[in-house]
Design a protein around this nucleic acid. Structure first.
Lengths: 202, 202, 202, 202
DNA sequence: TATGAATGAGTCTTCATTCAT
DNA sequence: CATGAATGAAGACTCATTCAT
């Protein structure tokens, strides 16, 4: 008699969930396939059936994050909207992404490895690129062409703008600070937009 | 024939140096006492004679960083200096600290562990506090009292100001970006100071 | 070519046998899991798959002894048999148990740890209770009620009687003396029974 | 300025005392020179100055026990004293020795090693011989010649007699039972003497 | 003599990974 | 696919012993 066991794909999800939990708590090196399989309620061999090895399992998680990032940051300059509105939209998009605990957790997991100067660290680092910054820089470039803002370097400005968001909503959270409330978030957005407008507005 | 036995204190330094190197590359969990002792050219037991265990060794390194941080961030409001000058001084102090590769390395080492949600991570996190932010917040408070700046929350402003530095000179470096050149640094300082003055100056 | 893989249960037996051998020679502290696994022709990790740790492995062996003890000492007073016969039977049962080298070996292993005043020593000590003495004391009690023997304390008498056996057949063997021959054994039994009868018989 | 430090011989005593404590708790293998030196408040090197190595230190302790044993068991047959009196004296001598906790402790320490079937175990075993039994056997021989007792084998009788004492006052204590009270002791002596007299008296 | 420091070998235990079922 | 069992290699930490001062 075989019990109605969760399907292949269910197990895969269980494993990924367990792995995220473990990597979150103990990092890549500190997590063991043993602990992950136990946490996922599957045999260790099953983990290996789904993922070639520990690194691959980690890379899969990193990939989940990458996909979410790629999805999240897509905006382009729109002549018919005001600068204010567009800046606000961009900031909010960034903030929305960072206001999801799951995203923060994934970022924490991956960050820890990216900082490392070893093999897998470099591998992950290469794979992750700051889409957000690039997108925003592009937007600023267009705004400049459209004669709405005045500045020298778009990438510099992009770093300033996004940095002003992240200084409140990302970097502290990286180290464990609580996610911003809706209200706090709006305040941060307004301040960032205002600062850009005041400093670089025409 | 007796070989020139290096002194106790020399070995301790060698061990710390080797440990920093290892932790930098592989993080806490990924580094082995074996590798550290080999790197330091001492026997493993010698490492244990100097440091009770791996965690203690790590905490010692974290402590080195903490001491440097405590030393580095000391400024108070000075009525006889211009706001511009003082903001610039503070920014430069921060930047100087972050322009030292050794400091960045130490921060990277400690950050990786601080992000972790396990025992030692929490321990380290508790021990490290953001002196810089507190100092700067205090300074802004005084500037407000002195009627030179106008704003609501000093801690908010402090996060904005320091965040503007760190967005260029710290967070990217955390992920491996090169340290800012002298010229780039000055540009960042000027931009940050300017932004604060423009936005909150009276 | 696949080698004839011995079954799980076989390996377990091999490990236990090897462990007994090691503990016999070197005691708990003096035996290494390395030596045990080598002796058992399995990898060290396999030993850990079967037994959580060294202590658990030892406790399993202690448990084997305990089971044998529990099995061996079961007799109750029988009105229809003569005192002489019953005393002789009890003594012989005890002696039979002690005439098995395997039993002596197990006792030696466990004794060494029981004498120790540390954690595992106390644990083992608590687990082992002298069934034999209790059973015999009960028997004497019944014999007294049946008006066949006259004495004050049954536990005192029990200690005397069993002590007289053990003085020849157990304590010397503990220290390495050879097991009693059949003939010697019978002589010891006769002397013990005789002494009890002569001294306390009615 | 050199502090008034305890003399050589004091340290030696401290070390021995500490070693006894450690060996008592953890046996030979389980005790570390580190723990012993710490317990004795001397440096590890000092321990090695006094005793060549761990084994030698242990053997010294075994020797202390041996000396005490040799001192304690000296009696010879005395025609002018009654059998009763002499048996009682012998028994009491044995009991006195076993009523000293320090002696029991030493015996426990040494026993653990003697039971072991390894190098040092055999060494210790060879060194320790049962003086008491030999002395008593001799005494019985004389008593037989003097026509006061009737039996076949003096060594058998000796084992019975001493065994009757030890069954109450030694073997249980080996496993941790409390030392007999004065009153209990006298009862044991009387019972043992009585049994011999009743069974083998002329 | 006393000691702080050093060390090679060894201890228990865990790990990532494989394989036959 | 899923798994229980197996393993070589490595990890943290301890030990008995030595040696220069």
């Amino acid at each position: 008699m075989k019990r109605n066991r969760p399907l292949n794909i269910e197990k895969r999800k269980d494993i990924l969930k367990a792995a995220i939990q473990e990597f979150y708590k103990n990092g890549f090196e500190g997590s063991s396939m043993d602990a992950i399989s136990k946490e996922a309620n599957v045999s260790k061999a099953t983990v290996y059936n789904h993922f070639k090895n520990k690194e691959e399992l980690f890379l899969e998680i990193a990939n989940i994050l990458k996909c979410r990032l790629d999805e999240s940051f897509k905006y382009s300059y729109n002549k018919s909207k005001s600068i204010n509105k567009q800046l606000t939209d961009m900031a909010r998009k960034e903030l929305d992404f960072l206001s999801c605990q799951e995203n923060i957790t994934l970022i924490q997991i991956v960050t820890v490895v990216m900082i490392q100067k070893n093999n897998i660290g470099e591998k992950i680092l290469a794979q992750m690129t700051e889409n957000c910054m690039l997108m925003t820089a592009q937007w600023f470039e267009e705004a400049k062409k459209d004669d709405k803002l005045d500045f020298e370097s778009s990438s510099f400005l992009s770093t300033q703008f996004i940095g002003m968001i992240k200084s409140f909503a990302f970097y502290p959270q990286l180290y464990g600070a609580p996610i911003l409330s809706k209200k706090e978030g709006e305040k941060v957005i307004k301040a960032a937009v205002n600062m850009i407008k005041t400093t670089y507005g025409k």
